[in-house]
Design a protein around this nucleic acid. Structure first.
Length: 257
DNA sequence: ATGGTTGTTGGACAA
């Protein structure tokens, strides 16, 4: 089972890239973020013709997440459980072949010192609590998405340029570790612990792609029994060099059946 | 150097 996550930065603007990618890469499950449209506006016909079932938690202009799957989606939940007063569409989960799969768009949190950073930390606290609950319920699950966290300095092209960025603050990283230390496995680093320049995001500005100025903020975390099935993981960097690309590229892993 | 670019939208905001 091949699972991929991709912040597409508008499904409307990115539909040609997404259809092309589905046809070439053929993920069993694709977790999308920043679809930037309401549920009714999602191009479900085109995605359906490509062979995928779809569930969305959409929102106009900002945010919005989706799960695409070749297999049926069951027991869909929209919104991060326990985070009841969130008015931003950043979380959806469903069961696919017995696996609970989530597509999440964790708040960016910039700039520091504003309610945006507080919102990020609170959102991460709810995510930690939800992951803990699923482990206590003995569920098999995968949490994939745009985490907006660079876990370590090796995940930034220039750590010094991110000293005031919410993606690498000590509070953000502490919560990231709390979630991982519940017993989860971050699929990419589990298989490629020291691989340098494994970037999943290149800013549109300042020629970041051409200069290879990237960061790694998109991740797929696995619960223990699921991690035992992990055989491959990767990042599709070349997607950033295509026509009208997203600023993020797909991040993926393979689980043996 | 408080810049630069993309997307939604139709000016400003988010990233």
């Amino acid at each position: 089972m091949k699972i991929a996550t991709w912040n597409v930065n508008s499904i409307k603007a990115r539909l040609p890239r997404v259809l092309e990618w589905l046809d070439e890469f053929k993920p069993d499950v694709a977790l999308l973020q920043e679809i930037k449209c309401v549920d009714e506006a999602f191009p479900a016909l085109e995605i359906g013709d490509a062979g995928y079932n779809v569930e969305t938690s959409g929102q106009k202009t900002y945010n919005g997440v989706a799960i695409l799957s070749k297999h049926p989606l069951e027991d869909v939940v929209r919104g991060l459980p326990g985070n009841t007063d969130d008015d931003q569409s950043r979380y959806i989960e469903a069961t696919i072949n017995g696996l609970r799969v989530a597509s999440l768009y964790l708040p960016n949190g910039n700039p520091l010192g504003t309610d945006k950073f507080d919102y990020k930390l609170k959102w991460m606290g709810h995510l930690r609590d939800h992951a803990r609950n699923m482990l206590q319920d003995d569920l098999d699950f995968a949490l994939g998405g745009d985490w907006n966290i660079a876990p370590e300095d090796q995940d930034l092209y220039d750590p010094g340029a991110f000293l005031d960025d919410a993606i690498s603050q000590s509070e953000s990283r502490a919560l990231w570790r709390e979630i991982n230390y519940l017993g989860l496995t971050e699929s990419f680093r589990a298989l490629h612990p020291d691989l340098p320049e494994a970037w999943s995001y290149f800013d549109y500005q300042r020629g970041a792609w051409e200069k290879k100025h990237g960061i790694r903020i998109d991740h797929i975390l696995l619960s223990p029994r699921v991690a035992d099935r992990l055989t491959e993981a990767g990042i599709d960097r070349d997607e950033r060099g295509r026509k009208q690309p997203s600023d993020h590229v797909p991040v993926w892993c393979v689980l043996e059946d």
